[in-house]
Structure formats: structure tokens, C-alpha cells
């Protein structure tokens, strides 16, 4: 009888440690406590070019993560990229003239949407559309411009 109790205890310990490991993976390795799906509202913004922005990219205000990108689609009329974002419900005090820009974390890091709150009294609500946007910086374009400029100066020197 004592043997069975000891076995049961070890089995209990094993299952507890296993479930503990699952929790460790969820909390510490992948950070489930970040942004949850429930209690959020959706806003969208139209960008000329959304660059390397992806679904699940973070949305930050002043460096604090407030939500994430849930969908990126193309507006067939204006040929703009429509970025839908889910914002955590606790952050609901953004003025209506908030502007959105796409920045890159570091030189080669992932791209994210940064919101710059404006000064109006009306607040952004569910399904609002952000009017003022700034497109992503595409590195190739900048390099292209730089090279092109360089060549121009060289040719003028020759002349």
C-alpha cells in the first residue's frame, strides 16, 4: 500500500512539473501576458507604402506597445495600403487627429506602427480611420536615391 502511495506522489509530482513547464513556456518563453485578443478596438490607417510591415507587428505610442497589426490590404481605388490595427481597450484616449508612421526598430529590425497623438478633443473610437500617415522608409529607395545623386555629381564634375 505504501508503495502505491509513493508512486502516486511521484506521478503527481511529474504531472505538476510537466504542467509547470507548459506554463513556463507560455509565460516566460512566449509572453502570453502581452496583448490579449479580448477587449480591444480596431482602427485603420491608409499608407502610401506599408513597407515590410507584417500582421502581428506591434503598434506603439511613445515606445509603449498598445496593440498590434491585424490585417494589411490594398485599397483598389487609391492604391493605398490599408493597415488595420487592434488597440488594447485600456488605451482609449487618443485624439482624432492622431497620426501614424511606420518606423523600423534599428537599422535592420522589424517594422512597427508608431502613433503620434494630436490635440483634438474628439477621441478615436472603434473603426476610426487615421487620416495623417507617414509611409515606411524603404531602404532600397534611399540607397537608390543616394547612388543616383552621387552619379549625377560625378557626371557634372566630368563636364
Amino acid at each position: 500500500m505504501g508503495n502505491t502511495v509513493k508512486q502516486d506522489t511521484l506521478v503527481g509530482l511529474f504531472v505538476a512539473i510537466g504542467i509547470g513547464a507548459l506554463f513556463f513556456m507560455a509565460m516566460k518563453i512566449s509572453n502570453i501576458s502581452g496583448i490579449s485578443d479580448h477587449e480591444s478596438y480596431t482602427i485603420s490607417a491608409a499608407f502610401e507604402n506599408s513597407g515590410g510591415l507584417k500582421v502581428k507587428s506591434p503598434v506603439v505610442v511613445g515606445g509603449v506597445r498598445v496593440g498590434r497589426v491585424v490585417a494589411i490590404s490594398l485599397d483598389q481605388k487609391k492604391f493605398q495600403s490599408i493597415v488595420k490595427m487592434k488597440i488594447d481597450a485600456q488605451y482609449n484616449q487618443f485624439p482624432e487627429d492622431t497620426s501614424a508612421s511606420i518606423f523600423t526598430a534599428g537599422l535592420l529590425g522589424e517594422q512597427y506602427v508608431s502613433l503620434e497623438p494630436g490635440g483634438m478633443d474628439d477621441l478615436l473610437s472603434d473603426n476610426s480611420i487615421i487620416e495623417i500617415t507617414q509611409s515606411a522608409l524603404v531602404l532600397e529607395e534611399i540607397i537608390g536615391q543616394f547612388l543616383f545623386k552621387d552619379k549625377n555629381t560625378e557626371t557634372t564634375k566630368k563636364e
Binding site: 504531472v15 512539473i17 510537466g18 516566460k28
Partner: peptide, 16 residues
């Protein structure tokens, strides 16, 4: 079937 997922979670956690 119950043990292997638990053991796998343990393996990955201890590995990290």
C-alpha cells in the same frame, strides 16, 4: 499520450 507532451514541455523549458 499524457506523458510525452509533458516531457516535451520539460525538455524545451530546461533546454532554454
Amino acid at each position: 499520450i499524457i506523458s510525452l507532451p509533458l516531457l516535451t514541455a520539460l525538455f524545451s523549458s530546461i533546454g532554454v
